[in-house]
Design a protein around this nucleic acid. Structure first.
Lengths: 198, 198
DNA sequence: ACGATGGTTTACACTGTGTCAACTGCAACC
DNA sequence: GGTTGCAGTTGACACAGTGTAAACCATCGT
């Protein structure tokens, strides 16, 4: 059972987490806990002491994902955009750098979320946070009168969130080998035309 | 290794496949081959004889996915739409019924595609087919002069494909609990405004 | 000197995958 | 009618990876 959330030396915990991150990046979901331990120069049991079990480690990885990326600052810059079109473009630029950084891990976590209760909850929680930030953007647009009246705030926010989600990015940038610029250009064109008042 | 593609009685093979489909629907990726065998009233070894290994079974499931859904007819109806807006709406209607049917299985397959070479190839192949059908729609729009000149055919097709992909649908309909109608309305509004000439 | 804390080492039980070999049941076929 | 061959069964086994348990060691604060 995914036990103790805080146990032992934080430094050790962090080394295990980093090792796990690397291994997931390299091998996807097939990584073994013994490998994680070896990579972190720690016994396999230390992993169990810190994270309880495999799922517990993955849950910790979800947190780690956001911690390494200080989104606060970047988001502030997005919100500073002068008009709707450039706000959407800035959002898509942040989006692609975000996914580029976390994508190997995000892929595994999203896949594994249905195998474990706690992991699913942690992942959904992060996604709710994302949804909220996109909603804030839509609200800003609406307040400035830039959101087209065809859209309700709820629907626009959800649509933006869903379209900016992981898989869409992965299909375009990874599978179809799009450049960041092409992704940013196409997605912001899509969103600008769809959401903004003409 | 994922051996013989054709061995033994097709009826037995089909029963195993159906059993696997059911179990994936119920339990996601956690299903055991022994359960599949039991459900199909067949020995566990029969599963190995027919599909080689776990991955081989999943690959067969990918095919099974499209076989059970005769898309040809539905696609013809979509293409019969009189104008761009109704074509996009019909496409999104087909899209939501399609994903609704296959989503538990698609979820597992998409997640597992990175664990196995052959499975990944099979899945990518199906997705390439999807991409091609969406591209055909964009080409039809372009020929009728309904595609806005802001878009190249390639970019429009890829964007449409990516936006209509599995995850976007899942986030909206499953996670946010949208109705089919709301999905269809929002997505076709998004696409109509973004892609069609004003 | 002492006990608590953080970690190691060794050992083991359990589950699910994949493989093997020997056997059965049932056709079709000369 | 016996032979051949295919489809599937049965039972046994090796192997990997997860998770648990107990005994042990090192170090630090008091």
């Amino acid at each position: 059972m995914s036990s103790d959330s805080s146990y032992g030396d934080p430094a050790t915990r962090s080394r295990i987490l980093d090792a796990a991150w690397e291994l997931v990046t390299e091998q996807g979901g097939r990584f073994k806990l013994s490998e994680v331990a070896a990579r972190a120069s720690v016994s396999r049991q230390a992993v169990y002491l810190h994270f309880g079990d495999r799922a517990g480690l993955l849950v910790a990885l979800v947190q780690h994902m956001d911690d390494t990326l200080d989104l606060g600052e970047s988001l502030a810059r997005v919100h500073a955009a002068p008009d709707g079109a450039s706000l959407l473009e800035a959002a898509m630029r942040l989006n692609t750098t975000f996914w580029a950084k976390v994508f190997p891990v995000a892929q595994v976590l999203e896949a594994a979320q249905h195998e474990d209760e706690a992991l699913g909850a942690a992942w959904r929680d992060r996604m709710r946070f994302r949804h909220a930030t996109f909603r804030a953007m839509i609200e800003a647009l609406a307040e400035r009168g830039e959101l087209d009246e065809d859209w309700s705030i709820d629907d626009a926010a959800a649509t933006l969130y869903a379209v900016a989600h992981f898989d869409t990015w992965r299909e375009l940038v990874i599978e179809l080998d799009w450049s960041d610029d092409l992704y940013i250009a196409s997605m912001s064109r899509l969103l600008r035309r769809a959401l903004l008042r003409r």
